[in-house]
Design a protein around this nucleic acid. Structure first.
Lengths: 355, 355
DNA sequence: CTGTTAGCGCATTCAC
DNA sequence: GTGAATGCGCTAACAG
């Protein structure tokens, strides 16, 4: 038994397919009588419109795609959650595509999106603007969230990683720490590079000595790096890790070594993933409202999509910047802040330029 | 400038659309000469096939849908990650649909999937088998993962919540605890109900007194419940929470009250989300390899989809059961197990009946 | 208000 | 090996 089509419904209701379409889409006027007959047939056949066929006809898919590097950790899942909320609010479906190892793979993914989505949010670091224009054929609305690319002329959202790192270091300096080490992220990662640059910049500005150690954003790498740090001479009195997971790994390494945080070594992370507030001591970190950022990105994509159907639309090439804010918990030596899930924080700001 | 169609390519290459289709799909023999001309045109126009149109023609979408209750917490994100890996391995796209508040909402979601996906994995508790058959029209392959429903005759995967809870309580009893309290999950939640049932059953079997308190799966509710427990008379010496987040909330409440875990009160959770290994003391809990379960579910759905195109396919109505395994960490009084990320555990088992 | 018809973009017969 | 024609299921003019 195959699925019923609009034609089956039309036959059973003794009307034309057009009428069926009218009652189902709500567009066009229909007699109450026909409406009733159609609905009866729909019910009897348990007919469900074929959205693929509808898409082909209307050239709208009511679906948006998200291209991600991977699905690991809380960052991306929170982001997707935010996007999903906004998408649903607009009656849109969400199709996720992740784990693209290289540019070719990512390009293939993006090409396969044609005819499947009305717009795209791209976070994959392998996809720069050139890559996109080459693989996108028509002008599918695309929102870039993969950092860098300030010059692409495409709408984008980026995190102020340098500013966040500077804020972290400045806070540590203000608290009196002087030997501040850094654990960096993966070599090729842009965000990691920016955070490290901010660290170096701020440390030098304070007249201190930078000390960078390698990590890869995993908790394990933070653990390894901190263990090595503790064995080395010239042990630091504070650590700024390029993300929270590494900071937590460092925290555990400290505990295992019988040292206390922040008394012996203070620790600051980046991202403020949910776990950060749950470890002890609570992790001081740079907060990004991830879900909210995802929601905001989706809202913006929706606007982009709407604009493409307008004749006189002003092309949006705005680059938005998300400014992380410092959340102070116990891991950096402020025992006065020890509430359950947070602590004091600098005022939030989310600004956009050029709009 | 609109996106190029297969016809544009055909014109530019001076061949028929059929030939273009042949070189692009790989099906059918083509001269090297024509192939070259077509490829040239494809390149020049940066043509990308319209997957929607292709789907309509082939009646395959190469996309699978996942219906979830929500996207909160690490459980669902890990599950999706596992599914995504398997889906990609089979060249399938993943479309996620979540946050359905009620049955009507969920039904609408599932209906809108027709013509959009080749198969569905359903975790939404609002969708029982009757609901599905009513809204599915044809016979779209569906894998159920929403518990209960053992009688539906549909392929499904379920977690042995009762068995897990029994294992947790038995372990606590074996460790010498006698006043074992429970914090349950949301009222309507089936999994929560099963875990509670297992708890009550095991406690009674041990000749002890059950003591159930209310929670809603959030960390905050665990915190509240534990705080209340501590204030009450007849304070328990152990707690079994219906999930990890509540267990962690309870853990924090203990710390704030100046009590020690497990010395004053032991705590056991359920799920083994990644955080569980990172809190201190490490949380003893029931481990489910979430990502692996997602991967496995997707593999099974792929098989279901493949079977529908076979004429003599044996309908799969198997109900698989995932058995959680107890992971012993420090929170239940086994300080001898104190590695970084885990601890000893009972042997894993994943069995299926009826296959 | 209703029915007829022409696409949407592509894969796939079927003749040549 | 190639091209012309048909249909996938639906919406949207267009006449009636």
């Amino acid at each position: 038994m195959k699925a019923a089509t609009i034609r089956d419904v039309a036959e059973r209701a003794h009307v034309s397919v057009a009428s069926v379409s009218r009652v189902l889409t709500g567009a066009g006027a229909v007699t109450d009588a026909t409406r009733a007959r159609v609905m009866e047939a729909v019910d009897a056949l348990s007919y469900v419109p074929h959205s693929g066929a509808r898409s082909l006809s209307t050239s709208r898919t009511d679906t948006v795609g998200v291209i991600l590097p991977d699905l690991f950790g809380e960052f991306f899942s929170e982001l997707i959650r935010g996007m999903d909320v906004a998408a649903r609010a607009h009656g849109l479906h969400l199709i996720v595509s992740s784990s693209h190892d290289d540019a070719a793979d990512a390009s293939a993914a993006i090409r396969s999106m044609r005819g499947r989505v009305d717009g795209l949010i791209v976070l994959s670091p392998h996809l720069d603007s050139a890559n996109l224009t080459g693989n996108l054929s028509g002008r599918l609305p695309v929102l870039l969230m993969n950092g860098g690319e300030a010059d692409s002329g495409r709408p984008s959202i980026a995190v102020d990683n340098v500013g966040g790192a500077v804020a972290a270091v400045e806070h540590l300096v203000a608290m009196g720490y002087r030997r501040i080490a850094h654990i960096g992220g993966p070599a090729g990662n842009l965000e990691a590079r920016e955070r490290q640059a901010g660290y170096v910049q701020a440390v030098l500005a304070a007249g201190l000595e930078p000390a960078v150690h390698n990590g890869d954003f995993t908790q394990a790498s933070g653990h390894v790096a901190m263990t090595a740090l503790l064995r080395g001479r010239d042990r630091p009195d504070a650590l700024f890790a390029a993300n929270d997971m590494m900071a937590i790994g460092a925290l555990l390494a400290l505990q295992e070594a019988g040292l206390r945080c922040p008394d012996d070594i203070a620790v600051v992370g980046f991202d403020d993933v949910p776990i950060a507030a749950l470890v002890r001591p609570g992790l001081t970190t740079l907060h990004i409202d991830i879900a909210e950022t995802g929601r905001h990105a989706m809202e913006r994509l929706v606007r982009l999509i709407a604009a493409t159907s307008l004749p006189d639309a002003v092309p949006d090439t705005t680059r938005e910047t998300i400014h992380p804010r410092l959340v102070i918990r116990q891991s950096c030596g402020s025992p006065q802040f020890s509430t359950l899930d947070g602590g004091a924080s600098a005022p939030a700001r989310l600004v956009s330029n050029g709009e």
